[in-house]
Each structure stands twice: as C-alpha cells, then as structure tokens.
Computed example of a mutant assay.
Amino acid sequence: METNQYTPLYIFLLSFFVLVVVSYFAYGFGKKMKLKGKIKTSPIITPSVLGLLSLILSFSFSMSISRYEERRKLVIQEANAIQTAYLRATILKPVPGIDVRKLYRDYLNTRIKFYEAQDLDKEIKYSVEEQKDLWTHYKKVTEKDRSAVETLYAYALNPMLDIATTRNYTLMRTLPIQIYALTLLIAIVAFTSLNFDRGFKHEENHWSTGVTIALFCVIFTFVYDIDHSRDGMITISQDAMYDIRDFINSYN
C-alpha cells in the first residue's frame, strides 16, 4: 500500500469546484423553469436533503475522529511495549553472535520509518524480518535459560509483536471511499435543490451560497484529512517513539 495520492488541498478544490458548477447550473435552470411556469418547488425537499447531508457528515466525522484517537493511543502503547521488552532483554543471558540491543535499535528505527514510509507494505516486510530475528534470539535464549527472567521476557515480547500488527492495519485502513463518494453525492443533490429554489425565486444574493459551499468543503476535507493521518495536515505525533529511541541509544 503506497502513500495516498490525494492531498487535502486536492480534495477541497475538487469538491468546491464540483459544487460551484452544480450550483451555477441549478440556479440558471430554476430561473428558466420559473419563466416557463412549468414546475413548482416543494418547501420540504431542500431542508430534508440538507438534514441528510448533516447526518452523514456527522457520521463520517465521528468515525474519522475515533480512528485517529485509536491510532494515537497505539503509538504510545507500542512505544511502551518496545521499551519494556528491551529492558527485559538486557537482563537475559547473552547469546553468542547476537547483539540483542542492536536488534531492538534496528527494530525501533524500522517502526518509526513505518509511519513515514511511502510504501507501507515494504516497511511491514522489514518489520516482519526483524521480528523473526528477535524471535530467533528468544528461542536461543530458551535453550539455555528457563528461569523466571526468561518467562518475564516472553510476557513482554509477545505483546510487542502483537501490537505492531494491530498498529499496522489500523493505520492502513481508512474510511471506505464509498462513504466519501456518498457524502459528495448527497451534497450535490442538496446544493442542486437549494440553488434551483433560489433561481426559481429569483434570489440574486449569491454570497451566502458560496459561504455554505466553502464551509461544507472545509468540513469534508477535514474529515478526509484526519482519516488519512499520514498524508495530510493533521498527523499523529511520533514523539513517544522518538523518546524511546533516545532512551535506548543512551542506555548502558
């Protein structure tokens, strides 16, 4: 999976352009129908569609915020898990030919790069290879040490590997594209109805419609941006991982 190619600015400009064009033609069509006297408008259609638009925006916003918070917590949890496993690894009996401290330094650097990588699948493969090295070290430890220390280390290593997998797929999975498409479709219907009514009534004040479209596009872009927390303006802090890296590099 590669980095998302659609930036928040692209999403904002695309949605704004589409809605402005739709509103322009809907307004002109409403004026034309009024002059011909061939159609009547219903006062409940526009409020109903705008209400539906508000509902799906709220739904999407809630889901994106929930995903963002989950990803943020997983960064801290993984940093804590790596630190705990590393500290317990340092008190194990040394295994000839394996520098366990270097294994953990390399693994932590890979996990930091994972968030910033262009190709997530590639970084996941690197993580898996280094996890295998850590597990190989653990297996060799058990050949010589079956003490409580070894057992304590196992209780730290397994959760560290598990949380890495959880974080991988939590970060890669975003809201289905169908939700964004449905939201934009409902917005098109809503602003078409709104501006058709305005044209039908010969309302000449256009700034309020422009502001409404702009506000919708800002919220729509915000939902998209926070859902794609690696690529946009709102990102997840990696400070916890950096702090653990500094701790490991300075640990004697």
Results as ranks from 00 to 15, higher is better:
Ile11Pro: 05
Leu13Cys: 15
Leu13His: 14
Ser15Gly: 07
Phe17Ser: 14
Val22His: 10
Ser23Phe: 03
Phe25Val: 06
Ala26Phe: 06
Tyr27Met: 10
Gly28Asp: 06
Gly30Gln: 12
Met33Tyr: 12
Lys36Gln: 10
Pro43Asp: 02
Ser48Asp: 12
Val49Ile: 15
Ser54Glu: 00
Ser62Met: 00
Ser64Phe: 01
Ser66Gln: 08
Glu69Leu: 13
Glu69Trp: 12
Glu70Leu: 13
Arg71Ser: 14
Gln77Ala: 11
Ala85Pro: 09
Ala85Met: 05
Arg88Cys: 15
Ile91Gln: 08
Lys93Gly: 11
Ile98Phe: 12
Val100Asn: 07
Tyr104Ser: 04
Leu108Gly: 07
Asn109Met: 14
Gln118Phe: 13
Asp133His: 13
Lys139Tyr: 07
Lys139Leu: 08
Lys140His: 06
Val141Leu: 03
Val141Met: 04
Asp145Lys: 00
Arg146Cys: 10
Ala154Lys: 13
Asn168Gln: 12
Leu171Arg: 04
Pro176Asp: 00
Gln178Pro: 04
Tyr180Cys: 02
Ala181Lys: 11
Leu185Gln: 01
Leu185Ala: 10
Ala187Cys: 03
Ile188Arg: 03
Ala190Ile: 05
Phe191Ala: 05
Phe191Glu: 02
Phe196Trp: 12
Asp197Met: 07
Gly199Ser: 07
Glu204Leu: 05
Cys217Gln: 00
Phe222Met: 06
Met233Tyr: 14
Ser237Arg: 00
Met241Thr: 06
Ile244Met: 01
Arg245Gly: 04
Asp246Ile: 00
Ile248Glu: 04
